[in-house]
Design a protein around this nucleic acid. Structure first.
Length: 851
RNA sequence: GGGCGAGUGGCGGAAUUGGUAGACGCGUUGGUCUUAGGAACCAAUAGUGCAAGCUGUGAAGGUUCGAGUCCUUUCUCGCCUACCA
């Protein structure tokens, strides 16, 4: 390219993208002579076009992959498609298309868009979860887990839309109504398939400790989700008009048993069956399901109860009998669906007791209170000592009191020590068409039959009627009815939750074309685990926990599978945000519909109409505050977009999209190109000079050090600042009388430092200077890193008064001599005595003097 | 209610983990060049003061020769979570 021309990203980016593709530069192969690095970003859902979130996610991963390659690692950086899911079904229904066609079209569009970002992806490993080549292995995994006893079927409540005849996910229920039909959602019991993830609760919890390259935040979220609690199960004897003589409860506070004043049951507790005919109870139950839909209602939710005629007996004090209620705040799926109420030391129980005038007996006093302490306006759940508890009195709350009480209960055979987990089994059945078919069938008695492995894959039928009520597979009789070994069966028509697909895709990338099985042992033994996984924090719990479960499930009863955790390192990037705009009629406006005139936004189409600017929020179609990456790439090029998306904020935090910032990045590349040509001319001159070269070498070396450190620590925004610093320095320094050879050597290193962030630009410059192969990350010269002169901060009584540039490693005495020679300090030091000197080598000296 | 995190110029953000606060960019101001510029280049830019200086990292204390960084209290904001017994 002619050096007077502007930097033409259109030509140059295309050229390099084609070259990378043709030479298969990013193709990953098992090579035991090299250390591997598996870099993975969360694969996208093919929704139509890529968005800025993708741009950010994949740019971050690409910077890392390219850096690791230059560092000499054997990098695998694959990409695929999380291609099953409801949007395809909905879009297909609306546009009268086939979900498969819709999905594949989107994949092809998005793949081209990703390629235009210049990502270093091994496209030969591309996978799509909706292809039979992928999901057939998933069906086999399902059968394997079934054989291992990790899959089972049970009845479970679901959100049922009576109009659409379909099951709704929680987020599809809005104010108790179906998002599409608007019908009031019912709770319905359905038979569904479950993965026994709770079997691994303790393992999943323990595994978190090993994950020292995961954000703490995510580990805490998972820990809370798994929700281990230590306590005791107690069987309460009951008396009353029902054929019930015992109710089990789980409690973490058995020590407060003497404060017992009621027993509360979930409305779904098995005892509720005795109230099926009781109208008042049925009404109460309805009332309970009304509250508790919205989050706020739960937060301030009133406690309501339904009193039974049962009385529960305090096992430590058989004379005490308390009423048994059904209560809206008791959850059926935690513990036993029953709690013992101790109002004095639990706020919920306190509220409930107040409402129903139940006894509030204080059994814990805070430290420093006397035995007459009484709980008044709120429950006391802090530490202290037991009181009013007979033989438990004076035990220290919480540790001693809980352990001792459990011992006593166990001795009396009233209770048992118990560890309880909040984590529930994973319901994987979805009454949907566009998903992986579950390889199960039922005979005409409804008995389960696993499809024989040799009959796999079960291919999702095409040409289904998506407008039928309920699951379209249900009405596909020719697919549904099958014969195995001469016997008639009906297929399972539910499909798998799409989270199943994404729970093992990282394994598939290791052996994407292996036909026999989901992975090949040699491949995963080399590539796994994923060294760096990058994606949004919104998957902190479900996707990441399910993936971790999958590894444990595959390794269960399988000694050849040696992995415990899928992702060694995790990085969660922030979102891309943009200001929001609304017109006077409160309609959202997109950024292209508005323009800024004299500090005020106006509507482009109607310039006399003012626009209200809202806060910057995560880009979303509904608020119209989206910027289409494709337009941006067309206008400014991939490198400029990469530069901008990395520059403005640390990658783990949200970033504000800014048109000005984007333009600045574009202009910067133009300036950098001008500088490149200037440098190239200087190199060509072949000048020999020994005068001022050292500065350049030192600076380059410092930058290698800085950028390397910043790359290692994900400080990608600082790397961009470093690139600007390099520009500023070289742009000045290049005018000096420098040796051409020195310029060439150092500039080459600089270009390598540029290449993870702006690969097309750096490649072009390197080639322009005739550098071809041997591209490896530049080494740091530690000797050059040491300056022979150092700025010493001179403090008087802790205040900075002077900076002295003196030789490195100078000792305290010599530095003090120099200080005394400096007239600027006379006014501080004359006629004063130095009481103490703090000397930090090569940093500072602090003189403490008498004032 | 519980958990986690963050508060630094007009803005986004740096600060080798206790040692020159404000790197780098945006914006702003002034200048150069140009028919013109919303282009390019140069310079300035925390506040205050003519200046030496003084004051400054949400607020108040503390530890230290020295604190944006550590400790205590407190305020504000963001995110996650939700009646988990």
């Amino acid at each position: 390219m002619n050096s007077t021309e502007r930097y033409n990203f259109k030509i140059i980016e295309k050229k390099w993208q084609e070259r990378w593709q043709n030479l298969k530069v990013f193709q990953a192969k098992v090579d035991h002579s090299k250390e591997k690095f598996y870099c993975l970003e969360m694969f996208p859902y093919p929704s139509g076009k890529i968005h800025m979130g993708h741009v950010r996610n994949y740019t971050i991963g690409d910077v890392l992959s390219r850096y690791k390659s230059l560092k000499g690692f054997n990098v695998m950086h694959p990409m695929g498609w999380d291609a099953f899911g409801m949007p395809a079904e909905n879009a297909a229904r609306e546009n009268n298309l086939d979900p498969k066609d819709w999905t594949n079209k989107n994949i092809s569009t998005m793949k081209n868009q990703l390629k235009r970002l210049g990502l270093s992806i091994d496209w030969d490993r591309e996978i799509s979860t909706c292809s039979e080549e992928y999901y057939k292995h998933q069906q086999l995994f399902f059968l394997e887990l079934y054989e291992k006893g990790l899959v089972y079927r049970k009845e479970n409540y679901v959100n049922w839309d009576p109009v659409d005849q379909t099951v709704l996910a929680n987020e599809q229920v809005i104010d108790g109504k179906g998002w599409r039909s608007g019908a009031i959602v019912e709770r319905k019991k359905l038979n569904q398939w479950f993965f026994n993830i709770s079997k691994f609760s303790q393992d999943l919890l323990d595994g978190l400790d090993e994950l020292n390259q995961w954000p703490n935040k995510v580990k805490i979220m998972q820990k809370n989700w798994i929700g281990k609690s230590f306590g005791c199960e107690i069987a309460f004897k009951t008396e009353g008009d029902l054929p019930v003589n015992e109710i089990k409860c789980f409690t973490t506070r058995p020590d407060t048993l003497f404060g017992f004043s009621f027993l509360a049951l979930s409305v779904d507790h098995e005892i509720s069956k005795y109230f099926n005919e009781d109208k008042r109870f049925q009404e109460f139950k309805k009332e309970c399901s009304k509250t508790g839909t919205t989050e706020e209602a739960i937060a301030i939710g009133e406690k309501i109860g339904f009193k039974t005629n049962l009385m529960a007996i305090n096992p430590l004090n058989p004379n005490q009998k308390v009423p048994v209620f059904f209560a809206n705040f008791v959850l059926m799926d935690y513990g036993f669906g029953a709690v013992f109420g101790c109002p004095a030391h639990d706020q919920r129980d306190f509220d409930f007791a107040r409402k129903y005038n139940l006894e509030i007996k204080t059994v814990v006093k805070p430290n420093g209170e006397n035995d007459n302490f009484k709980v008044k306006d709120e429950a006391y759940s802090g530490p202290g000592e037991l009181i009013n508890s007979e033989f438990l009195n004076n035990l220290k709350v919480p540790d001693e009191s809980i352990i001792k009480t459990i011992e006593i209960l166990e001795k009396k055979k009233i209770g048992k020590k118990k560890i309880n987990f909040r984590l529930k089994d994973w319901g994987v059945s979805r009454q949907r068409y566009w998903g992986c078919p579950i390889p199960m069938a039922y005979d005409n008695n409804g008995k389960v039959k696993a499809i024989p492995k040799e009959k796999l894959p079960i291919i999702l039928p095409e040409n289904v009627d998506l407008n039928s009520k309920g699951n379209p597979l249900d009405s596909k009789d020719d697919w549904k009815n099958i014969i195995i070994d001469g016997k008639k069966y009906v297929r399972e028509t539910d499909t798998l939750d799409t989270f199943v697909c994404s729970s093992w895709y990282y394994l598939r990338f290791c052996s994407p074309r292996n036909n026999e099985y989901g992975y090949k042992k040699e491949d995963i033994d080399y590539w796994m685990p994923v060294d760096q996984y990058i994606g949004g924090v919104e998957h902190a719990i479900l996707h990441l926990l399910y993936s971790r479960f999958f590894m444990k499930a595959l390794g269960y009863k399988n000694e050849t599978f040696k992995f415990n955790e899928p992702f060694k390192g995790l990085f969660t990037q922030g979102m891309v945000c943009h200001e929001t705009y609304k017109d006077q009629d409160n309609n959202w406006l997109s950024p292209d519909e508005v323009e800024l005139i004299g500090g005020q936004y106006h509507k482009k189409s109607e310039p006399n109409k003012k626009v209200n600017v809202g806060p910057s929020e995560s880009m979303s179609k509904s608020k119209k505050n989206v910027i289409d990456p494709e337009n941006i790439i067309n206008n400014y090029g991939a490198d400029a977009v990469r530069l901008f998306i990395l520059s403005d904020s640390p990658p783990e935090k949200d970033v504000q999209w800014s048109e000005q910032g984007m333009v600045a990045s574009y202009k910067f590349l133009q300036k950098l190109w001008t500088l490149h040509n200037k440098i190239k001319d200087k190199i060509k001159k072949n000048a020999k000079s020994n005068n001022e070269n050292l500065n350049l070498e030192k600076f380059t070396n410092q930058m290698i050090n800085k950028i390397t450190n910043n790359l290692e620590n994900f400080n990608y925004n600082v790397i961009i600042a470093n690139i600007y610093e390099i520009y500023n320095f070289f742009n000045k320094e290049i005018d000096k009388n420098l040796n051409s050879k020195t310029i060439e050597e150092n500039y080459k290193k600089i270009l390598l430092l540029f290449s993870p962030a702006i690969p097309h630009f750096a490649s072009e410059c390197l080639e322009d200077l005739g550098f071809k192969s041997e591209i490896l990350w530049p080494k740091i010269n530690l000797d050059l890193l040491k300056e022979d002169k150092v700025d010493y901060i001179v403090q008087i009584n802790g205040k900075k008064r002077l900076i002295l540039n003196e030789s490195r490693d100078i000792n305290q005495e010599n530095l003090l001599e120099k200080i005394k020679l400096n007239k600027l300090l006379d006014k501080y030091l004359n006629n004063k005595s130095i009481v103490k000197i703090i000397f930090v080598k090569n940093r500072l000296i602090n003189l403490l003097i008498n004032e």
